Amino acid sequence: MPKITYVAADDGERTVDVPVGTSVMRGAVSNGVPGIVAQCGGNAQCATCHVYVDPDRYGALPPMSDHEDAMLDTTACPRRETSRLSCQLKADADFEGLTVTTPERQR
């Protein structure tokens, strides 16, 4: 089970075990990690699970779909080069040590 660290916009952080096959979003919600609203429940329809991925790990993630790319243009906080929807990131062994930062706000 990979350990993923969630860093809040206010610099608080929490590391949790996320089961393989579980989304980074679901890992946060299931463990009470603040900053990820997940209003649509993981269907890539609301962009309230927007995160900034650690730049050193971003290139190793699976590519984003065109739909995710379009949804990232609707986030409450500015999109960055390392922005992803955490509902679209399914944990696997390569996610061990992944760090994501939540934006200041979600919609």
Score class of each variant (00 low, 15 high):
Gly42Pro: 08
Ser83Cys: 06
Gln39Gly: 08
Asn43Ala: 14
Gly32Gln: 07
Arg80Thr: 15
Thr22Pro: 01
Val7Asn: 03
Ile36Asn: 01
Gly21Met: 02
Ala93Val: 11
Gly12Tyr: 12
Glu81Gly: 14
Asp56Thr: 13
Ala93Thr: 14
Phe95Gln: 00
Leu85Phe: 08
Ala76Thr: 11
Met25His: 06
Glu13Asp: 11
Asp56Gln: 14
Val37Asn: 11
Glu96Gly: 03
Met1Ala: 15
Asn43Thr: 14
Ala9Leu: 03
Arg79Thr: 15
Gly32Ser: 07
Gly12Phe: 11
Cys40Met: 04
Gly32Asn: 10
Arg105Ile: 13
Glu96Leu: 08
Ile36Gly: 01
Thr101Asp: 00
Thr15Trp: 03
Cys40Ile: 08
Pro2Tyr: 04
Ala47Phe: 01
Ser65Thr: 15
Asp56Met: 06
Asp94Ser: 15
Gly27Tyr: 04
Ser86Arg: 03
Val16Phe: 00
Asp10Cys: 07
Glu13Cys: 10
Glu96Pro: 04
Ser83Val: 06
Asp11Trp: 09
Cys40Thr: 09
Val16Lys: 00
Pro103Leu: 03
Pro2Trp: 03
Glu68His: 01
Val16Thr: 04
Thr99Phe: 05
Ala93His: 10
Arg80Lys: 14
Glu81Tyr: 12
Thr5Tyr: 04
Thr75Phe: 00
Met64Ala: 09
Val7Pro: 01
Tyr58Ile: 15
Ser30Lys: 09
Ser86Trp: 00
Tyr52Asp: 03
Asp56Arg: 08
Gly41Pro: 05
Thr82Trp: 09
Pro62His: 11
His50Lys: 05
Pro19Trp: 01
Pro103Cys: 04
Met71Ile: 09
Asp10Gln: 08
Arg14Leu: 07
Thr75Trp: 02
Arg80His: 13
Asp54Cys: 02
Gln106Ile: 09
Ile4Val: 14
Arg26Val: 15
Met71Ala: 06
Ala70Cys: 04
Gly97Asp: 10
Asp10Asn: 15
Met71Lys: 02
Val53Ala: 01
Ser65Ala: 07
Arg107Phe: 12
Asp73Pro: 02
Met25Pro: 02
Gly21Gln: 00
Glu68Leu: 03
Ala8Pro: 02
Val24Ser: 01
Val33Tyr: 00
Val37Asp: 13
His50Pro: 06
Arg84Glu: 10
Arg26Pro: 00
Asn31Phe: 07
Pro63Ile: 09
Lys90Asn: 12
Gly27His: 01
Met1Arg: 07
Val20Thr: 14
Gly42Tyr: 09
Met71Arg: 07
Ile4Arg: 02
Ser83Tyr: 02
Glu104Arg: 15
Leu72Ile: 02
Cys46Trp: 04
Arg80Met: 15
Leu89Cys: 12
Glu104Ser: 10
Cys77His: 05
Ala60Met: 06
Thr74Glu: 12
His50Phe: 00
Arg107Asn: 14
Asp92Tyr: 03
Ser23Ala: 12
Pro78His: 13
Asp66Ala: 11
Asp54Ile: 10
Leu89Asp: 10
Gly12Gln: 10
Ala60Arg: 08
Arg57Gln: 10
Glu104Ile: 10
Arg107Pro: 12
Thr74Val: 08
Cys77Asp: 11
